[in-house]
């Protein structure tokens, strides 16, 4: 079992994204993450958690609105787990975002999931006991 020593719990509100981003910066420092990994992490948290807050937790009752974030480094890989009790949603099963060929057709929906895919080494999802668990991996070496 990989130890995920860094943890943060936020309320499912957009205002909390800033606290999350500040925590990511601090935790990246403690874990001595390379700058590009810290950037990818910041990006993936923003995309994954904004999605959870805007869609997954939209109708959730107050007591179920927490988002729990944990992360730790093991064998050259940064492991991140994001959990919430919102609606079931599997971003790993979402269809690929098609890059628009011109501005007139540009649609931004799905872009967040494309960024999650491109900026992580691996991504997995499971739903157990009414809880979404999204696990992300980032390679520390280039």
């Amino acid at each position: 079992m990989i130890r995920l020593a860094e943890t943060l719990t936020i309320k499912g509100e957009l205002d909390e994204l800033q606290r999350c981003s500040e925590w990511v910066a601090e935790a990246s420092g403690r874990l001595e993450l390379p700058a590009n990994v810290a950037f990818s992490l910041d990006l993936c948290f923003e995309e994954a958690i904004a999605n959870i807050i805007l869609y997954g937790l939209k109708e959730a009752p107050e007591e179920d609105r927490d988002v729990v974030i944990r992360m730790g480094v093991d064998a050259g890989v940064l492991h991140v787990v994001i959990e919430d009790r919102g609606m079931a949603f599997d971003p790993t099963a979402a269809p690929d975002h098609e890059a628009p060929s011109d501005l007139d057709q540009a649609k931004i929906g799905g872009l967040g999931i494309l960024l999650l895919r491109k900026f992580t080494k691996a991504m997995s999802y499971e739903r157990t006991d009414g809880r979404n668990r999204l696990a992300l991996e980032f390679a520390l070496a280039p």
């Binding site: 950037f39 910041d42 990006l43 923003e46 995309e47 904004a50 501005l103 007139d104 540009a106 931004i108 872009l111 967040g112 960024l115």
Partner: peptide
């Protein structure tokens, strides 16, 4: 220093209006 999909949406929307 940082851009995410919401920021991209904002830039694309602006560029669309100009175009």
């Amino acid at each position: 220093s940082f851009v995410a999909s919401m920021g991209i949406r904002c830039i694309v929307t602006g560029a669309k209006t100009i175009r």
